[in-house]
Design a protein around this nucleic acid. Structure first.
Lengths: 147, 147
DNA sequence: CCTATATGTTTTATGCTTGAAGTTTATTTT
DNA sequence: AAAATAAACTTCAAGCATAAAACATATAGG
């Protein structure tokens, strides 16, 4: 029962969480002030922008790691605002594919540019060595142990 | 405009976020299944447990980095369940101090023990060198640049 | 076939979260 | 001391989030 390593892991987790929250807060504020939008909406649009042909609802919730019902709500609102559209998937009448509309693509292009610059600034303190080392340390954390 | 470092920072941010979300999901599930509680409730109780004399509402929202109104709601529910109690602060009738009740302290003791073990397991892949190096890299991210 | 089971999405109930506005009490300014 | 300002909470409206149930369509197995 290596209690000291255990405590240190716990402390790292709390710091990881706190850091994420801090960055999220910064980005949320900027998105609201400069583009009058929210982080969840931005995240959804970002995922969609990487696949112009669109993503199924379930693919969206997988990628964003949020529940299905959650995605339904966000897409409902984005669709009402004309930023995305639901199109039917042929060959499967259960599924829906969601894609950015023209307006959505246009809006996202501007936001993405600003967003990248904000992140760049927030992460200024890290040089390429730090980046690579943290990335490689984080990767195994996303694998569930022993299964 | 060092675009490559900028892209790498963005990628790190997305991975940081994804990692936090993954860990949070694991912990949330275990808290629900084993203790029938939620992560926000656990976080509040954890903060309170570190200061038996209690914390003011504003101290809680500072520490947890959530809004005031949010804390009000969580404390309302915890209080209704007898896990915490609001006590008045003498010398300032605006403020409230919140502290764990006897039942809350008892419940938290069990949860904290399990929680530490879960985190220890989720972070197994990191040894003390990794832990120290990540901790020191993360710290500057929580300082707002130039101010 | 046709029943069972699995998949894709939405709905429902409840709780979390935010930002802004409101209330009450303290502190500062004039 | 009165008026302005600030601080500590709570309330409110809207959106985000989850888990579980419901619904609709697909895919298998007998």
């Amino acid at each position: 029962m290596n209690s000291s390593a255990s405590k240190q892991r716990l402390r790292l987790w709390l710091q990881l969480l706190k850091t994420s929250k801090h960055i999220e807060t910064q980005l949320r504020n900027k998105l609201r002030l400069e583009f009058d939008t929210t982080l969840p909406r931005f995240d959804v649009m970002s995922a969609l922008s990487r696949t112009p042909s669109g993503l199924k609802m379930s693919e969206l919730s997988d990628q964003l790691m949020v529940s299905n019902g959650n995605v339904t709500g966000i897409i409902d609102r984005l669709e009402a605002d004309g930023q995305v559209q639901r199109v039917s998937v042929d060959g499967d009448r259960r599924a829906t594919r969601v894609q950015l509309s023209l307006a959505g693509t246009e809006a996202f292009t501007h936001m993405a540019q600003a967003h990248e610059a904000w992140v760049d600034e927030l992460f200024q303190s890290l040089d390429e060595t730090d980046l690579a080392s943290i990335e490689s340390s984080l990767a195994p954390l996303r694998k569930t142990p022993h299964d």
